[in-house]
């Protein structure tokens, strides 16, 4: 069923996490292969959000291991995960609404001017605008005005800016938390195209989604969580929507897979 020599870029083994009396993750496993789109699915409360937060450094697991390119890693902050090449686009997009797309793309990682001016903190807006334009063009994201506030842009454009920002910095893995939840049909199509382009650049994409048709359309593989454990792994091209739904709802128990 699996191409066993596909190297894993990011993997989690036997991860546990409790919040008070609630066991969100009960020995969960998860794998991201190099250069794939993998969908992380599961019902509400299955532990998806907790797992993503652990893998992106927002919270630490109680036990279990996370490996990046084969070496164990322990991220104590999202910054550490980002420095290791793992980016996350949250549902709220984490944009600064009153700043323009260029400032958002480089937020916290501004390009400085060369020489003394740069050392005392002067930013190089022209260089950032050029690089931003290159990124927007490469990912075919339409940003009409590089100087407009992102707060005035449409949902699809804002999603585009957030994804471009993440892709600019993601070396290994990009997490997208329900990126199409607030979008219309056409914008959703654009985001799915964008996800494929990101994968084609060699960055693995983890898509957290509730939408079976969307996942079938864009993902290479699906991993399913239920009650804090991995209960199913599917290669999309050889699986049916019914099998995946069955794993999500627990109608078919595939935990041995």
């Amino acid at each position: 069923m699996f191409d066993s020599d596909t190297r894993e870029v990011l993997s989690a083994r036997a991860v546990r996490k409790s919040f008070g009396n609630v066991e969100a993750l009960r020995g969960a496993d998860f794998d991201v292969h190099i250069g794939e789109v993998v969908a992380l699915m599961g019902d509400n409360g299955a532990g998806k959000t907790t797992l993503v937060k652990i893998l992106s450094g927002v919270i630490s697991p109680d036990s279990g291991t996370v490996r990046l390119e084969g070496s164990p890693v322990e991220f104590s902050s999202p910054i550490e995960a980002r420095n290791a090449g793992i980016e996350t686009v949250y549902q709220d997009l984490s944009l600064a609404d009153t700043l323009d797309p260029v400032a958002n793309l480089f937020l916290g990682r501004e390009i400085r001017r060369s020489g003394l001016l740069g050392r005392i903190g002067f930013v190089d807006d022209a260089a950032m605008r050029r690089e931003a334009q290159v990124t927007f063009d490469a990912l075919n994201v339409t940003v009409k005005a590089l100087r407009d506030e992102v707060g005035t842009m449409s949902g699809g454009q804002r999603q585009g800016v957030a994804v471009c920002r993440a892709v600019t910095w993601a070396k290994h893995v990009l997490f997208l938390d329900e990126p199409t939840a607030a979008l219309g049909v056409r914008q959703t199509q654009n985001v799915l195209d964008l996800i494929r382009r990101v994968r084609d650049r060699g960055v693995s994409v983890v898509l957290i989604s509730h939408s079976i048709p969307e996942v079938m359309a864009v993902a290479d593989r699906v991993e399913v969580l239920r009650l804090g454990q991995r209960v199913g792994r599917f290669v999309v091209s050889t699986s049916s929507a019914e099998e995946i739904v069955g794993a999500i709802t627990g109608a078919t128990d595939l935990s041995a897979a």
Binding site: P78, I79, R82, Y90, S94, L95, A96, D97, T98, L99, A103, L107, G108, R109, E110, R112, I120, G121, F122, V123, D125
Partner: peptide, 27 residues
Amino acid sequence: VVLALTVFGRWTYAIGSNSESARRAGI
């Protein structure tokens, strides 16, 4: 000049715009 042209200024706008986003961006 500090406000308009430096990293310090940019971050001042960023934390006023959305301090949580700024935090996630590593500021």
